[in-house]
Design a protein around this nucleic acid. Structure first.
Length: 477
RNA sequence: GGUGGGUUGGCCGAGAGGCGAGGCAACGGACUGCAAAUCCGUCUACACGGGUUCAAAUCCCGUACCCACCUCCA
């Protein structure tokens, strides 16, 4: 069984064959840090985090690069509107983004390059393109440098478009362009823009075009040829098409596989920045925990559009809590030494889970495998004692832990430890325990009215009581 | 105009020629003093119209509606 991935360029699921055995180089387009991240942005990060984790689990030595675009038109415009330096805005938003990634346990990439830190690499690439006759400096003195689309016959190959069918850029102030579809590699400095947003180049001061950044950074950290390039569907054109064109025109084979995650939509439409604050990550995290939001995203396939709703999110959270609940109960029921022994013995993942993940990261099917095991485990917990050899429960528990871990969803992982608990646990425990003792006394006297009253009061405070064979347990809702 | 994707049960969400994905909700049962949690069971769906096939949600043709990209976008 080998890993198969959907390759946008081939428009088909293909066996993953790395350039170098045992290693995988992945480049994912990160964000332009111009505003706070919403759930859609984070979906991409979660999807590719799952890819990264699965590659690692499968034994690959993964180099995972995700960039930050920290200079571009919008950053300059927004910073201008807010009357602050553009680099301050970009840095602020970058930190917001980091917080959002962290809240969803998106692992830090191997390295996260900034566009502004790689100007020399970009200039080098642009010069190579000019030498090879695939780029030219505008003759209007603007200092712009463009990629010459007509000079590269396979332009459009990634998205199967013919140059002649493409609509010319509407903004096309044709200026120094030879063809309206030519795109900027380098943008000459404009007097209206801050000088801090410009760098010296053979064509005068200026700043890089968007597409060249990724080509330069991918090349620097992954080499001229690497395995997987990812990003959101919208990036296929023009961004990824242009990246590929300019990299290949410069003589670099570039990416072997192209992967694109689908959107999270609202009301059937793409989530755009004009939607306001309701879907910003911190806002959504007021309603559910980070691990629940991650579970919601992982429950859908990365290439399927997800219609976001708080109802669906709450449902997912509900479902996840059932898994967590099983974990808690099993952990309490199982012999600690035996558990430790089984854990350290290094169990293999269930074949159904592996097959699901190998099939183009079939996380929905993988989650279904987890639920099947949770049910199995619950049955063992509920059922005929004596009939069950306890090690089956231990095995089931460890399997569930393993699978959740692969998906970045193990609630026991230290990363999530601040998520649900807080310093008041001890205080609440003392209070609730006192009340539970009163309830127990009432129940012993068959005074159920009083017992239920106490339970209702506790519940009203947001604490749920569960009677177990070993006595009542409480948990905060 | 060109390109890519979608329409699945009350809801979410997989699958991609034959074996009832899974979850949430609801209902019935077991358990419980009653609950909660858990288990068992019920709810047999694939936009529409044709076609291919022993067999179609899945393939083919057509229709309708929706979304995305071709301008910044995860």
């Amino acid at each position: 069984m080998t890993l198969r991935l959907y390759d946008t360029a081939a428009r088909a699921v293909r066996d993953f064959v790395p350039l170098e055995e045992g290693r995988a180089g992945v480049y994912v387009c990160g964000l332009t840090v111009q505003s706070e991240p919403h759930v859609g942005h984070v979906r991409s990060a979660v999807n590719f985090d799952v890819l990264r984790r699965w590659l690692t689990t499968s034994g690959y030595d993964v180099t995972f690069i995700r960039n930050v675009t920290d200079i571009d038109d919008k950053i300059l415009v927004k910073a201008g509107e807010q009357d602050r330096p553009w680099y301050n805005l970009a840095y602020d938003m970058q930190r917001e983004l980091d917080r959002a990634y962290d809240a969803l346990h998106v692992l830090p990439p191997t390295y996260e390059p900034l566009a502004t830190g790689h100007i020399p690499e970009m200039l080098q690439l642009i010069e190579a393109l000019i030498e090879r006759g695939h780029a030219y400096a505008a003759e209007d003195g603007s200092g712009d440098v463009y990629f010459d689309v007509q000079s590269w016959p396979s332009y459009g190959e990634l998205t199967r478009q013919k140059v002649d069918d493409m609509e010319a850029a509407a903004d096309a102030d044709p200026r120094g362009k030879r063809d309206p579809r030519d795109f900027a590699l380098w943008k000459g400095h404009k007097p209206s823009e801050p000088t801090t947003a410009s760098w010296a180049s053979p064509w005068g001061r200026g700043r890089p075009g968007w597409h060249i950044e990724c080509s330069a950074m991918a090349g620097k950290y992954l080499g001229e040829a690497f395995d997987i390039h990812g990003g959101g569907v919208d990036l296929r054109f023009p961004h990824h098409e242009n990246e590929q064109a300019q990299s290949r025109a410069a003589g670099h084979p570039f990416a072997s596989y192209w992967m694109h995650n689908a959107w999270i939509t609202t009301s059937g439409e793409k989530m755009s920045k004009s939607l306001g604050n309701s879907l910003l990550v911190p806002h959504v995290l007021e309603r559910v925990r980070g691990i629940e939001l991650r579970f919601y995203m992982v429950s859908a396939h990365y290439r399927s559009t997800v219609e976001f709703s708080f109802e669906a999110l709450a449902e997912a959270a509900q479902g996840f809590q059932r898994i967590e609940h099983f974990l808690e109960r099993a952990l309490a029921a199982v012999d600690a030494d035996e558990l430790a022994a089984v854990r350290s013995a290094g169990r293999k993942l269930r074949i159904e889970f592996i097959e699901a993940m190998d099939d183009d990261l079939g996380t929905p099917a993988a989650v279904a495998v987890i639920y099947d095991l949770v049910r199995e485990g619950n049955r063992l917990l509920a059922g005929d004692p004596g009939a069950d050899p306890e090690d089956r429960l231990v095995e089931t528990l460890v399997q569930v832990e393993l699978m959740l871990g692969v998906l970045g969803l193990d609630p026991a992982h230290p990363h999530w430890s601040t998520d649900s608990t807080n310093d008041l646990t001890g205080v609440v425990d003392a209070l609730v325990t006192g009340l539970l003792e009163q309830r127990a006394a009432a129940r012993a006297d068959k005074d159920f009215a009083t017992a239920d009253l106490i339970r209702d009061q506790i519940k009203a405070a947001g604490v749920t009581i569960e009677d177990t064979p070993t006595g009542p347990k409480w948990s905060v809702e």
